[in-house]
Amino acid sequence: MTGMQPQTTALFYGTELSSRLMLGTSQYPSPAILADAFRRSNAAVATVSVRREAAGQAAGEGFWRLVRELNVQILPNTAGCHSADEAVTTAQMARELFETDWVKLEVIGHADTLQPDPFELVTAARQLCQDGFKVFPYTTEDIILADRLLDAGCEVLMPWGAPIGTGLGIVNRYGLQSLRAQYPDVPMVIDAGLGLPSQAAEVMEMGYDAVLLNTAVAKAGDPAGMAEAFGMAVAAGQLARTADPMEPRNMAAPSTPLIGKAFLE
C-alpha cells in the first residue's frame, strides 16, 4: 500500500490494539469456526462472559483454553445483569477468572430493547472504576449519560448502533454524530446492533475508534467469511476517515474537464 496509511492501532486505557475490530465469542456453530473468524478478521479483542457451571462439567476449562489460544485481549462482560450490585459482583468474578481488569459493563434496563439502565450503569461504573477496573460501558448515544460515565471515571465509551442482536445498523445517526463531536478525544467503540460490514465502515468514517460485534458474524452463513469482511470494512472506514473525505455538494460538477472537448455540431 502506498500513500496515506490508516491509523491501524488504537489506544484504550493505555493499551495499544493492533486492530479496531472487537469480536464476541458467542453463538458460533463450533469452536473451530470461532477461532477461524478471529484469525481471518484480525480482531484484537474477544468478549467473554461468566456463567454457572455444575461440578464435573468441563465447559469452562475448555473455553478458557480456546480463548487463550486466540492470543487477543480479553474483555469480559456483565451481560444479563439488571442492577449495579449484580454487575459489580459479576465483574469481580470475571476479573478473577480471566485475569484482566478490563470489563464491558452492561446493566440492562429494558427486556425488549436491552437498553441500558442509565442510573444503575453510572452507579456500577463509579464503583468499578474506584476498584481499579478499566470500564467499557455499554451505553446509548445520550450525551448527558456519557458525561456522567466520564465523570465516574470511564475513559472509554461504547454507544450502541442499534439494540443488541438486531442487525439494524445505525438507527440514530444524528445522535451518534453529536456524541462523537461532543467528545472528540474520548475513545469510543460502536457496540451492538450492526448487521453488515458497510455499517461498520460507516461508523468508522464518522470518526469512531473501533467496532464491537458478535451476532452479525456468528449468525452469518459463513461466519469466518463475514468476520473477514467486517475486518476489511473497519480498516477501510478508518482509512477513509484518515484520508479526509470531500465535502458533499448539491449541484453537479463535471469530473471530466470541458477544456479541449471537440466541437461536433
Binding site: 464476541g24 465469542t25 458467542s26 453463538q27 458460533y28 470461532l34 468478549t47 467473554v48 462472559s49 461468566v50 456463567r51 454457572r52 457451571e53 461440578a55 465447559a59 469452562g60 476449562e61 473455553f63 478458557w64 480463548v67 469480559p76 462482560n77 451481560a79 468474578m93 477468572l97 480471566f98 443488541i164 451492538a192 458478535n214 451476532t215
Partner: peptide, 10 residues
C-alpha cells in the same frame, strides 16, 4: 452460593 466459570459472551 454462585459458582461460575468462563463462558462465551458478546
Amino acid at each position: 452460593l454462585e459458582v461460575v466459570t468462563p463462558r462465551q459472551g458478546g
